[in-house]
Design a binder for these strands. Structure first.
Lengths: 112, 112
DNA sequence: TGACATACTGTGTGATATATAGTATATATA
DNA sequence: TATATATACTATATATCACACAGTATGTCA
């Protein structure tokens, strides 16, 4: 086990996963579909992380859902709400500020 | 109170604060000094967030400390270790991947 | 028929940001 | 010289979330 690595990766995921989901849900998607989609764009989420998160975001009214019972197995489609878009804007702004801070601090680092 | 805002800001801080501290501690600094420094570069940390974090990072051996008892009030100076530099590299790499994913997903968003 | 992909639910745990509270010294100012 | 403010740090308690672990059940293909 290299140092304490999984732990810090989980920590780095916090916040980010929400941002990613709020961006992805510009297009309606159901959970499993999203897991695959996220892999396609070069990241990954655990099922047991994503599903609870979707429920949380819906509880916050940042995303909404509807069941599709008509095409094979039932699927729960989620989509971002207007409120969700406001939050998305906000968290993206926070990210940008953070990135600027990192860039600034990184200049002081020898052979980054 | 707009929506649930403080909560999400705290969430966005997770992971990021470590990155920021590991970058800042390229130059030795004590806690209080760091709080001021972080404000100067355009962010902010709570005392009750930073101090426990410094102890945690030290416990992980990502930073080391020494007391300066010689100039007025005792101050605990922290500095990044070699192991800390490895972690820093790693978390910065994660951040970059995340930023790329965000950029990619953002292209699908109308009037971001 | 049986393996694997699909699609989701539920419980428990650990890490950490922060709220809240407190200690104590140094320095400025009235 | 009293007192407010800045400095510098410690301690406890709480809530949230990522993920480990466990499970249900349907669809599909060899």
């Amino acid at each position: 086990m290299p140092i304490q690595d999984n732990k810090i990766e989980a920590e780095m995921n916090r916040g980010f996963l929400q941002v990613m989901v709020l961006l992805a849900l510009e297009t309606p998607m159901y959970g499993y579909m999203m897991i695959k989609f996220i892999e396609e764009v070069g990241y990954s989420v655990e099922e047991n992380t994503l599903y609870p998160m979707l429920r949380r975001l819906e509880k916050n009214k940042w995303i909404s859902s509807r069941w599709d019972e008509e095409h094979g197995r039932p699927k729960k489609y989620y989509e971002i709400t207007e409120e969700g878009k406001l939050i998305r804007k906000k968290v993206l702004a926070i990210r940008q500020i953070q990135n600027r801070v990192i860039t600034k601090l990184f200049k002081g680092v020898k052979n980054g």
